[in-house]
């Protein structure tokens, strides 16, 4: 396993930076966390369609793919690749195909966790 310090710094800086944008929205607008998630996925998807997100992914790797705009990126990239390969059907199949593992894991494992654990009182 190769450790590239510069790459690690880029990942941290870009990933943390995207979160700071989210924090500024939380603190200075009346957007709450669920709305920000939706906004970030949409913005990530739109930037990808405009060809502006891929350079960020090339630059920062996980720093750009782990935050929610990266989910929008994965969806749009999936659609575009699949549409290029198999035509109109790709519009409907590409997005979920490219993100299937994450979505399925989130729902199935989430369901499982919900069945096992109980919510706790906050303090």
């Amino acid at each position: 396993m190769q450790i590239d310090i510069m790459e690690m710094i880029r990942v941290f800086a870009v990933g943390g930076g995207i979160c700071v944008i989210g924090q500024l929205l939380l603190d200075f607008t009346n957007l709450n966390a669920p709305r920000i998630l939706v906004l970030f996925v949409a913005v990530g998807g739109i930037l990808t369609a405009l060809g502006l997100y891929q350079p960020l992914v090339d630059f920062a790797g996980s720093g750009a793919t782990v935050p929610l705009p990266g989910f929008g990126y994965a969806l749009v990239r999936g659609v575009l690749e699949e549409t290029a390969a198999s035509g109109w059907a790709g519009v409907l199949t590409g997005g979920i195909k490219n993100t299937a593992a994450g979505i399925t894991a989130a729902v199935v494992f989430g369901y499982l966790v919900a069945l096992i654990f109980d919510p706790k009182s906050k303090r």
């Binding site: 939380l26 709450n32 966390a33 919510p119 706790k120 009182s121 906050k122």
Partner: peptide
């Protein structure tokens, strides 16, 4: 009750919000 009001009016207890 914090835990009944929270789930009705706001977020689930285990949701990581600020």
């Amino acid at each position: 009750h914090f835990s009944t009001a929270e789930r009705q009016f706001r977020m689930p207890l285990e949701h990581g919000n600020q």
